[in-house]
Amino acid sequence: MTSQSRLAGLLREGRFVVTAELSSSDSADPEATWRQAEVLRGSVDAINCTDNTGAHVHMSSLAAAHLLVEKGIEPIMQLTVRDRNRLALQADLLGAAALGVRNLVLMSGDDVTAGDHPEARRIYDIDSMQLLEVAAAMRDRGTYLSGRKLEQAPTFFIGAVENPFAPPLEFRPLRLQKKVRAGADFIQTQLVFDVRLFAHFMAMVADLGLVGKVFIIPSIGIPRSARSAHFMREKVPGLHVPESLVARLERTPQARQAEEGVKIAVELVNAVREIPGVSGVHLIGIKWEEGVVQVAEAAGLLPRPTLSPLVSAGGRG
C-alpha cells in the first residue's frame, strides 16, 4: 500500500510528462490489452484506461488498469459518473487502490445517447465535481462519503478533465478552479487543435493563481487519416476540429496522411509546450498506439526520464 504514483513524482520534480490513451479492449483475452500497452512502454510515463469511452461498452477501466499494473506499466484509471452511483464509484475506487492503481481521472462522461446503448438509463447520482471531493475525502480523511471510516486510506493522484473550447468559455477556468478545490491534482484537457484559444484559456488559469497548484496536461490528437479527422469533427461531443485541419489532410495523398497526422500532432505538441503552466502532453492516437510513439519520438520527448529509484513503478509496493 505504500507505492506512490510515478506520474505524480515526475510532475513534482518538474519534468514535462507524456501520457497516452490505451485503445479500449473488446476482448476477454488480456493479451489484447497487453499488446497495445507494450507498444507504448518506454515512450510514455503513464497510460489512461478509459471508462466506456464515447459511451460505448468496453472492458472496464478498473480491469484494464490492473492488467497494466501486472506488467509494471503505470495506469491512469478513468472513471465516469454516468454508469455508477455513489456506492459503486467508491467501491471501485477502493478496489482500484488495492489493485495498485494510483492515478485517477474522474469525469462526467459522454452521454449514453452518444454511444452504442442509447436506450440505457443514465445514472449521474453524483457529478464529476462531487466525485473528485469523494476521492479526495477517501484519501485525505480516510472516510467514505457517508462518513464511515476506511481501514486504510488509498493514496491517489487525482485527475480531472476540462474542455477549454466549450461554452461558456469565461466559466471554464473558474470551473477548473472549482475542480482544484474539490481535490484535483492534475487536469487532462480536451483535445487541443486551436492553440490560440488554448493559450487564452491558460492565461485565465494563470490569472486565477492556479499555475503551481495543479498540473495541466493538454491532450493532443493524432489524426491517422482525413477520414478520422472528419469523424472527430462530426461525431465526438465537445471536440472542436478546425475545418482547415481536415482540409490539410484531405489535400495529402492517402498513403501519406498518417505521416501528415503525426506532423500535425508534433506541431501542436511544440506549440503547447511554449505556453506557461503546461506540465506535459496527453497523446491520443485513436486505435493507433504506434502513432503516439512516432509523435513522442519526433517531438523529442524520448527517452522518458526515470524517477529516483526509491519510488517503485506502479506495483503493489
Partner: peptide
C-alpha cells in the same frame, strides 16, 4: 441538465451553446 450536473457544465456543450 440530462446529467443532473449541479457544479457546472460538462465538456460536451456544443459550440453554439
Amino acid at each position: 441538465c440530462p446529467k443532473n450536473l449541479r457544479n457546472g457544465p460538462c465538456g460536451g456543450v456544443r459550440p453554439d451553446g
